Lab assay of single mutants.
Amino acid sequence: KNAAKIVNEALNQGITLFVSDNKLKYKTNRDSIPSELLEEWKQHKQELIDFLTQLES
């Protein structure tokens, strides 16, 4: 999976991924984040940080 797909899947579940101080963060109104999503974010962390940083610049 690529970073764009992961970010879109998160958005579809009401979760916004973003970068703050070079760290991957998220915002959501959900009570909890599915563990498989958290695991996927960890596996692709640097790719996600790079992707989101490019989007914001």
Rank of each mutant, 00 (worst) to 15 (best):
D21Y: 06
I6C: 03
E47Q: 09
T53W: 06
L11N: 06
I15W: 03
K25H: 14
N2M: 12
H44N: 10
K45D: 08
E36V: 09
T16R: 09
N22A: 07
K27F: 10
S32R: 08
K5C: 12
E47K: 06
G14S: 04
L55H: 11
I33F: 07
E36G: 09
G14Y: 04
E47D: 08
S32M: 09
F51T: 02
L38W: 08
A4C: 13
N2D: 14
Q43A: 14
L11F: 10
T16D: 05
N29G: 07
K23S: 10
S20R: 09
N2P: 12
N8A: 15
K42F: 12
E39C: 07
L17K: 01
E36Q: 11
E9N: 08
K45M: 15
F51V: 02
S20H: 14
Y26K: 01
K23T: 14
I33M: 04
E9C: 06
N22I: 03
F18A: 03
Q43E: 11
E56V: 13
N8S: 14
D31A: 12
N2R: 12
T16V: 15
I49A: 02
H44I: 04
L48F: 01
K25R: 13
E40A: 09
D50Y: 12
I33Y: 03
E56A: 14
K45Y: 15
T28G: 06
K45P: 02
K27S: 09
D31P: 14
E9P: 00
N22W: 05
D31G: 11
N22E: 06
F18M: 05
F51S: 01
N8E: 15
L38Y: 08
S35H: 13
I6F: 03
H44A: 06
S57R: 11
D21V: 04
L11R: 12
S32Y: 13
V19T: 05
K1M: 10
N8C: 15
N22S: 08
Q46R: 09
L52C: 02
E9L: 05
Q54T: 10
A10H: 01
A4W: 14
A3G: 04
S20Y: 12
E9S: 06
W41N: 00
N2G: 11
E40K: 12
K45H: 14
V7W: 09
D50K: 09
Q13W: 15
Q54P: 07
D21T: 04
N22K: 08
K23N: 11
Y26S: 02
E40P: 02
Y26G: 02
K45Q: 14
N29V: 09
N12S: 15
N29D: 14
I15V: 07
I49D: 01
T16P: 01
L48T: 01
Y26R: 01
L37W: 07
N29M: 11
E39K: 09
T16F: 15
K1V: 13
E36W: 09
L48Y: 00
K42I: 14
K27M: 08
N8H: 13
E40H: 07
E47R: 06
N12D: 11
Q43T: 13
T53I: 13
D50N: 10
E40F: 10
D31Y: 05
T53Y: 07
L37Y: 06
F51E: 02
K5I: 13
F18H: 05
L38V: 08
K25V: 11
R30F: 05
E36F: 09
I15C: 04
K25T: 07
S35D: 12
E39Y: 08
L37G: 02
W41C: 03
I49E: 03
L37I: 06
A4D: 06
T16N: 06
E40D: 09
K27P: 01
K5A: 15
N2V: 12
E40G: 05
F51W: 09
L17N: 01
A10R: 00
K45I: 15
K1Y: 12
A3K: 01
K27Q: 07
Q54V: 08
L48S: 00
F51M: 03
N12V: 13
I15P: 00
R30P: 02
L52I: 06
L17A: 00
D31Q: 11
S35F: 13
K23E: 15
V7A: 04
A4L: 09
L11I: 08
K1F: 14
A3Y: 05
K45G: 08
H44Q: 05
S32N: 12
H44G: 02
E36C: 07
Q46N: 08
K23G: 06
K23V: 13
N22D: 08
F51D: 00
S57G: 13
Q43L: 14
E36Y: 13
Q43V: 12
V7F: 13
L55V: 13
F51I: 03
R30V: 05
E36R: 08
Q13A: 13
Y26T: 03
L37D: 02
S20W: 10
W41L: 06
S20F: 11
T28W: 04
K5H: 13
A10M: 03
E56F: 08
E9I: 06
L11M: 10
W41M: 06
L37H: 03
L17G: 01
P34T: 05
A10K: 01
F18I: 06
Q54G: 11
L52G: 00
A3N: 02
L48V: 05
G14A: 04
E39V: 08
E47T: 06
I49V: 07
L37R: 03
N2T: 15
G14L: 03
L11A: 14
E56W: 08
L37C: 05
E40R: 09
K23C: 12
E47C: 07
E36A: 12
R30E: 04
F51A: 02
L38S: 04
E40S: 09
T28A: 06
T28Y: 04
L48E: 00
L24S: 00
A4I: 07
I33T: 03
T16Q: 10
F51P: 00
L38F: 09
S32E: 11
Q46P: 05
N2Y: 10
L24E: 00
F51L: 05
F18Y: 15
L55E: 10
S32F: 12
H44L: 05
E47L: 11
L52F: 06
E39N: 09
Y26V: 04
A4T: 05
Y26Q: 02
L17H: 01
K25N: 08
K5P: 02
